[in-house]
Design a binder for these strands. Structure first.
Lengths: 405, 405
DNA sequence: CTGTTAGCGCCTTCAG
DNA sequence: CTGAAGGCGCTAACAG
């Protein structure tokens, strides 16, 4: 249409527009707020023209200052590196867009100190609410939030001592779904691999559900509470009808040394279980590889592959994508490109490489999680007072080659 | 330390603090701005106490309104789905943190309309500057930005008609690096696969550099300008010493039908080239796969693998990660898990699945790109007036199995 | 050293 | 229907 004047050094203010339109600031304000019915068509036209001419854009900061609400919400992210986070973010973006909110995105990068600092900053900007994907530690740093403080909704994980709306995956159901799938496909030695879970509710729930299913499967042996009492690797159930065994392995991705140790334990189990290609040198370096590497050791192995198996079938159940990636990388380095013939992998989360590598996953409704979170928050901002709500969304099992016989 | 009072329904203002401390607002303001030298230790202590008692936090909005700067910068992202974007974002976050800036992150999700809308919104919030990873189309929607408008720095791609600082990969060098690597490893039939590049400078540069190298390699045949004149798939050079052939294949990821067509063309070329496993049924469905799938057809192929090759060696050079993923998925579906024995893949960008699948990549210094972008912007905000600068950072070749013989 | 006085850009009574 | 006046929370001259 009409070419706007070259962006002024100083942006036009409501006063400028008023002068330009030959009227008072009040009318301009009314126009901006859509109170058209109270403006004569004539005045309205003049205002319209003036705004156009000056390329005027109301200052949100000033409006916010005056009315006490600035349409800003904070989005506190524990880890942008996790694909899950990015996906949730998209749902958040979309919902904000739809509701006229503007998200201030903050990335704590797994550091409590950052989380604290950002929360402070958000407060300072007077955001009307926050969506928190907490680091999961103590509620201490999250004090300014929630009841009494600024409206908040938690994503993926709840924080003890903080009552607020929560939206995330139905962890129990998802873990059960995955475990059952593995069991149904004949795996009788399942390792649930998870990051330290004492502090993170979602991990806790997943692990607990896994153990429960395994216990049921192995003839109802007891195992005590749900706490993180069992250290690095706890035995799930043994014996029982199918004799299915369940283990929990903690993989602290933040600690290379710990990762190494945990993986070593896993390796031992895998080697012990035997299985196809068991004879292959475990030292298959993937740096100085020969041209035959791809099919190395598999030529023979594949022959017995579909035959009756008399060894235990090991499966790894990764609690989330980062864990799955770590496992996959390790297995590939250790057993070569054909590692999947050796051990099955199933993961909660559905990273982009899952399809490529044929790994079975349980996809979280990430987009919807983000979307719902914003909706909840919006309601709170609008004054809804109901008690804290939980919104548990179901995961979807996506079966791929990795867990099929 | 001392337990802050339960967050007040209404946050304390500077006036409250002044009253509480028994002094004027000015002193409080001075305290907030660190003008300690002008405050008596006694007053200072009282202020400190009052602030603590009231859990006072200055209102950024109000400060911004007054001083005309709010420390907010906009970050306009074309596509959060691209890992590249997320990585750059981390650099941005870090730099903002260091410089006391607060980034408002906006995701255009590849829609021009969104981009326009967000830019508008950012303007409305009076951000002091913007970092733009433009969609790359016309400069039209980016008019309010750059010279005369609000300070801006471009990331990854420049926009015609918009003079502003730019920071991104040294595309020419990167494409050359990749092409040379393939050539050096004996590939004599190279397909550069890229998304529509007329509008996106970085893609253009990569493609052009690729063609140049290939031309040089094939005996300096001409090829005309750098424009996108050659439609869907242009022939690079043919003949020449090694007889290396170069092709450019456009993959419009936004158009499933176009993708299908382009991939079909690629398939034909691959099939024609023969190579290991050429006899394998190209209809290898990966859904209903048998247990032998993994090594299918490779048992024999690997025997001739390292032997003298009398067929052309095809390599795919993906211009970025999304393209590489698309290619990999397709190839895997078509040639099975062992697709890499059939065709080599090299990609600019280093997605997390590259290591897992052993794909050679050229890693962009994403973190640094983001960091530098903020630094540039900060300088501009502080008033630096030099002519538009370009910061081209080098890519790093990460050799993996995919491109080795 | 400290307080008083004006606004920043906008919205909101409250009178015309 | 329209405009003038006052104030949101804070800073920036000016006076003491």
């Amino acid at each position: 249409m009409s070419t706007p004047p070259l962006a002024a050094a100083r942006r036009a203010t409501i006063t400028d527009v008023a002068r330009e339109a030959g009227t008072g600031k009040t009318s301009i304000s009314r126009y901006l707020n859509g109170e058209m019915s109270v403006l004569s068509p004539e005045l309205r036209a003049r205002i319209e023209a003036a705004i156009e001419r000056l390329d005027y854009q109301p200052n949100q900061m000033a409006r916010g200052l005056k009315r006490g609400r600035n349409r800003l919400i904070g989005m506190l992210l524990a880890d942008l590196t996790n694909p899950y986070t990015v996906e949730v973010l998209q749902g958040v973006e979309a919902a904000c867009h739809a509701l006229g909110l503007m998200p201030l995105i903050c990335h704590a990068a797994n550091e409590v100190e950052m989380e604290r600092r950002y929360l402070q900053l958000l407060t300072t900007y007077r955001v009307e609410g926050v969506i928190v994907n907490a680091l999961g530690v103590r509620e201490e740093t999250l004090r300014p939030v929630g009841e009494g403080g600024i409206p908040a909704v938690l994503v993926d994980r709840s924080v003890e001592g903080l009552v607020a709306d929560m939206v995330g995956l139905d962890n129990r159901a998802a873990a059960e779904l995955g475990t059952r799938h593995l069991l149904d496909n004949g795996f009788d030695d399942i390792w649930f691999v998870v990051q330290p879970f004492e502090q993170v509710s979602s991990r806790q729930l997943r692990e607990a559900a896994f153990r429960e299913v395994m216990n049921g499967e192995s003839g109802k042996r007891d195992l005590g509470g749900t706490g993180g009492a069992m250290g690095k690797s706890g035995e799930g159930g043994k014996g029982g009808e199918g004799g299915a065994r369940g283990h929990t392995l903690v993989l602290n991705l933040a600690e290379p040394a710990a990762v190494e140790r945990a993986l070593a334990e896993l390796d031992r189990a895998i080697d012990a279980a035997g299985g196809p290609g068991a004879a292959v040198s475990s030292a298959t370096e993937h740096t100085a590889r020969g041209a035959t590497d791809h099919a190395a050791g598999n030529t023979l192995a594949s022959a017995t592959h579909s035959a009756t198996r008399n060894t235990r079938r090991i499966a790894l159940f990764a609690a989330n994508a980062p864990v799955a990636l770590c496992l996959a990388l390790h297995l590939k380095a250790r057993y070569g490109a054909d590692w999947q013939a050796r051990v099955a992998l199933l993961s909660i989360d559905d990273p982009e490489w899952a399809e490529l590598t044929g790994v079975t996953t349980i996809r979280q409704p990430t987009y919807e999680i983000g979307y719902r979170a914003v909706e909840f928050l919006h309601e709170r901002i609008e004054g809804v007072q109901t008690t804290a709500r939980d919104c548990l969304l179901p995961g979807e099992l996506i079966v791929r080659a990795s867990t099929l016989r």
